Amino acid sequence: MRRALTLLTALVLGGASPGAQATYVPLLTLTQQAKRADVIVRATLGPPTRVKEGEVTWLVYPLTVVETIAGDPASLPQLEGKPALYMLAGVEDLPELRAGQEAFWLLYSRRMDSPIVGFSQGVYPIENGRVTRLGETANTAPDPAAGTNTAGSATPTTPADAAATPPAAGASATPGASSPTLPAGTAPPPAPSATDPNAIERDPARFRDALRAARGAQ
């Protein structure tokens, strides 16, 4: 049963062949996650309990839904009349969750090793009023207002001699200059972009709107 559930996850998420022995989870964009999810909610986790069904043991977290972004929370597996996350106990690399954790949850409605889209990618905890990725904290999440790129590297500075007027055509470069002389009328090459294509909105309301837009994207 456990191996069958693992293979089901692999087939749904990564297109793995029936003979696969391990779950393969591709990296998904937020749009891909939103489109694959059956249910998207903002909710808080309750304390987990172990539920044994035959030879299978589930780690079950009840969900207190604060807001429904997409789908019907009633379609999720239920525990004592409330929607819940059923995580297959004993599976390696399951996401580390905690009771009281509020987050945006992108979920499959059927039972799997992990019902979270992308195995652990589709959970976005809300810490101190900011949306984070699992494993981040509000202190380590990039702040757009700080002016740094999301990769954590410092914003490149312009060398002092870069603003100088280029010499006329045919003139030699100034000895010791750090930049080569460009022909008259030639624009310098563009600087590499510091934008992270996988950056997310950190404001909960804007993140919710981004999820709704992603669901409607073609």
Results as ranks from 00 to 15, higher is better:
Thr158Val: 15
Pro204Tyr: 05
Arg36Met: 15
Ala213Asn: 11
Glu102Ala: 13
Ala145Gly: 13
Ser17Ala: 14
Arg202Gln: 12
Ala138Trp: 10
Ala34Arg: 05
Tyr24Gly: 03
Asp113Lys: 00
Asp72Ala: 06
Gly90Cys: 09
Thr155Arg: 13
Leu63Gly: 06
Val131Pro: 07
Arg2Ala: 11
Ala173Ser: 14
Pro95Tyr: 09
Thr174Cys: 00
Ala173Tyr: 01
Gln32Lys: 11
Ala217Phe: 00
Asp93Ser: 14
Ala164Phe: 10
Met87Ala: 06
Arg2Asn: 08
Ala173Trp: 01
Leu11Arg: 15
Ala164Gly: 02
Asn128Trp: 08
Pro62Met: 05
Thr155Asp: 09
Ala74Thr: 13
Arg50Val: 10
Pro73Gln: 03
Ala138Ile: 03
Lys52Asp: 01
Glu96Ile: 08
Arg110Leu: 03
Pro180Thr: 01
Arg98Cys: 00
Gly14Met: 13
Leu106Asp: 02
Ala205His: 10
Thr6Gly: 15
Ala213Arg: 15
Asp196Met: 03
Pro73Leu: 10
Leu13Pro: 00
Glu136Asp: 15
Ser109Glu: 13
Ala160Ser: 13
Asp93Gly: 04
Arg36Pro: 00
Gly71Leu: 04
Trp58Gly: 07
Gly81Tyr: 08
Arg36Thr: 02
Ala194Ser: 12
Gly170Lys: 08
Gly147Asn: 09
Arg208Glu: 14
Ala74Ile: 03
Glu127Thr: 08
Gly71Phe: 02
Asp209Arg: 14
Ala210Met: 11
Pro144Asn: 14
Ser17Thr: 11
Ser153Val: 12
Leu7Arg: 14
Asn139Gly: 01
Thr148Ala: 11
Asp161Lys: 09
Pro144Gln: 12
Glu55Trp: 02
Arg111Trp: 00
Pro188Gly: 03
Gly216Arg: 14
Ser179Arg: 13
Leu45Gln: 06
Thr158Pro: 00
Glu96Leu: 13
Ala74Cys: 00
Leu5Asp: 02
Val60Ile: 04
Arg98Glu: 12
Asp203Lys: 10
Asp38Arg: 08
Ala4Pro: 00
Arg130Ala: 15
Thr158Lys: 10
Ser75Met: 09
Ala74Trp: 01
Thr31Arg: 10
Ala168Trp: 05
Asp196Ser: 09
Thr140Asp: 14
Tyr86Asn: 05
Thr23Met: 14
Ala154Asn: 10
Val56Met: 10
Val117Gly: 05
Pro95Ala: 10
Ala141Leu: 07
Lys35Tyr: 02
Glu55Met: 04
Leu63Ala: 09
Ser120Ile: 00
Glu136His: 09
Pro192Gln: 03
Leu182Ser: 11
Arg111His: 08
Ser109Tyr: 01
Arg3His: 11
Asn149Glu: 09
Ser193Pro: 01
Arg208Ala: 15
Phe119Ser: 08
Leu94Cys: 09
Pro48Trp: 05
Arg3Phe: 06
Ala217Gly: 06
Thr181Leu: 13
Gly135Thr: 07
Gly90Asp: 03
Glu92Asn: 10
Trp58Cys: 00
Pro73Met: 04
Val39Gln: 08
Arg36His: 03
Leu107Trp: 05
Leu97Thr: 08
Ala214Thr: 04
Lys35Ala: 12
Ala43Tyr: 04
Ser109Asn: 07
Ala138Phe: 05
Arg206Pro: 01
Ala217Met: 06
Glu136Lys: 02
